[in-house]
Design a binder for these strands. Structure first.
Length: 319
DNA sequence: AAGACGAAAGTGGTTGA
DNA sequence: TCAACAACTTTCGTCTT
């Protein structure tokens, strides 16, 4: 497996320390990459820190920087959304070579043995079986929720780690996938609510929340609390609200935050209320009901938040 | 008639003893 | 484990445009 490159990706887990940059054997920081062997080794004592790295560099020699930019790796990109990370090779079923000629009996026997071993090694372990099931579920869920690839990849990384930590055992794959998606969307700053995700699965919100907290705790992922600002653009898109009004809503939220009236309040409620206010002041009025529906809260909450914001910030609403 | 408002009672989750 | 609590929801009658 290639876990060393996969799970230390600082892009996915900015808060997590990546695998140590110091040699555990001699403590030196002289770690070098050996791209031919695919290993990271300590240049002082020779200890192999990680092996089986994937070379993501150019596939051919390049002599100028221009050439280096043009020449890239061929083949499909490495992806966590494919069970084998997109690195699998298939042995064809036809007993012919690339010119269409029949294979010699000796060669045919060899290919037959290769095929047999490929099938034996592929999708046999419980890890792979679980994963391919989970990835089907992930695909279904993301298309239903309209989740983009970045979040999907992040969710897949989280799920792989969850399997490795044996967190999925005894829990439903569906619930763990849903929780990974939730965590991924939060990490990537395009949060979905627990409700939205729960609606697209057979998992209830409570169970989903439990799995989510488990993932955070066991995988040591720290996710900043959802900010109301993160919801503005998505709600606005569904409400067809202009960028100017969105910016106004964000300003309102920032002011409200400084005055300390956002703590402990539902972030979707705050986002909805500030959108309501800005939609009126910017002349693109939306009703409380419209906004509440998109934000999946009640009109009453929109009202309460908006009354509070208007009162504290001293905003005058044209009647 | 639709939208906004506010009161009252109920609900699920968090906190602290 | 339990009570207290804050935030949110549901429901409903009333007011405003």
């Amino acid at each position: 497996m290639v876990e060393s490159t996969e799970f230390t990706d600082t892009h996915f887990f900015p808060n997590e320390s990546i695998s140590s940059q110091e040699c555990v054997e001699c403590g030196s920081a002289e770690i070098v990459m050996d791209s031919i062997r695919g290993e990271r080794i300590c240049s002082i004592c020779g200890l192999v820190i990680t092996e089986h790295l994937i070379d993501t560099g150019p596939e051919w020699r390049a002599f100028t920087s221009d050439e280096r930019n043009k020449r890239s790796r061929v083949g499909s990109p490495v992806s966590c959304v494919v069970p084998s990370m997109g690195l699998s090779t298939m042995i064809g079923w036809e007993n012919r070579d690339i010119y269409g000629n029949k294979l010699s009996p000796k060669r045919r026997a060899q290919i037959y043995r290769l095929r047999k071993w490929q099938i034996r090694t592929r999708s046999q372990g419980s890890y792979e079986r679980n994963l391919s099931h989970a990835i089907r579920e992930l695909e279904r869920l993301s298309s239903q929720l309209g989740i983009h690839n970045g979040v999907k990849e992040t969710a897949a990384v989280i799920y792989r780690r969850a399997i490795e930590k044996k967190l999925v055992r005894g829990r439903s794959i569906e619930a763990m996938v849903a929780a990974s998606v939730y965590a991924g969307s939060r990490l990537r700053k395009v949060p979905r609510t627990l409700d939205e995700i729960a609606q697209c699965t057979r998992v209830n919100k409570k169970e989903l929340g439990r799995c989510y907290r488990l993932i955070l705790r066991e995988l040591h992922i720290s996710i900043p609390i959802a900010s109301p600002v993160d919801f503005i653009s998505r709600f606005s898109e569904e409400l067809k609200i202009s960028g100017k009004t969105q910016q106004r809503a964000i300003d309102i939220l920032n002011q409200a935050k400084e005055l300390g009236i956002t703590a402990g309040k539902d972030p979707t409620g705050l986002a909805a209320a500030s959108l309501y206010i800005s939609s009126i002041t910017e002349g693109e009025r939306r009703t409380q009901r419209e906004i509440a529906e998109i934000a999946r809260i009640t009109e009453v909450t929109v009202r309460n938040r908006y009354k509070e914001i208007v009162r504290v910030l001293g905003i005058k609403i044209a009647v």
